[in-house]
Design a protein around this nucleic acid. Sequence first.
DNA 1: AACGTTACCAACCGCAGAGCA
DNA 2: TTGCTCTGCGGTTGGTAACGT
Length: 209
Amino acid sequence: MGRSPCCEKAHTNKGAWTKEEDQRLVAYIKAHGEGCWRSLPKAAGLLRCGKSCRLRWINYLRPDLKRGNFTQEEDELIIKLHQILGNKWSLIAARLPGRTDNEIKNYWNTHIKRKLIARGIDPRTHQPASAAAAVAPASATAAAPSSHRHHGDDDKAVVVRSSCGSRDSSDDDSTSGSVPHQLGLGGGIDLNLSLSPPTSQPSSPAAAI
DNA sequence: AACGTTACCAACCGCAGAGCA
DNA sequence: TTGCTCTGCGGTTGGTAACGT
């Protein structure tokens, strides 16, 4: 792949962040704000690539992060949102103030998946496992937010077309228009999926239910 | 007490999309 | 219109703490 690396690997640290690096990053962002991740490391005196800095800030250092155990409400909300959105972790995270996509993704993979399986529900399709098994092979369809990029990009066709990708989701969010996910949700779930900036999101997770 | 296994979380990697010249 | 750069996302991996034998 002729793609240039995001950073000169030879001159960047990798692996766990040290306290000092954290402090530098926080101090820099407090002083200058987020933005231009590519040049940030140099400006902040960090031997990290911009990507790494961004990730560290978003997933760990941001002051508005909640951290700590997920509540029952959050749990259920994640399940419902996943049913609608599939593995669009950033969109799901946008509905859970103080939570990051990475955190939710990890939580899903380690806790919720298991929980659903234990309930006899297929975590990919949200259908009863037996039904899902019958349907799944051929069609990871509509209700099946198949998540596997590798296997065919069919998920692109399938997963909610928020036309997005990404940018519209969390940051600028000018798309504050509601995403018309009328996916035959049934169950009377009204998730009010209008997108709004995570920060300006006073509503508690429960409020969206 | 030592070893093996499982669970969890932080971080990395590669790709896609948006923005800009 | 095209090609390049940068950012953000989702999947995956690696390290380690917790637990069981």
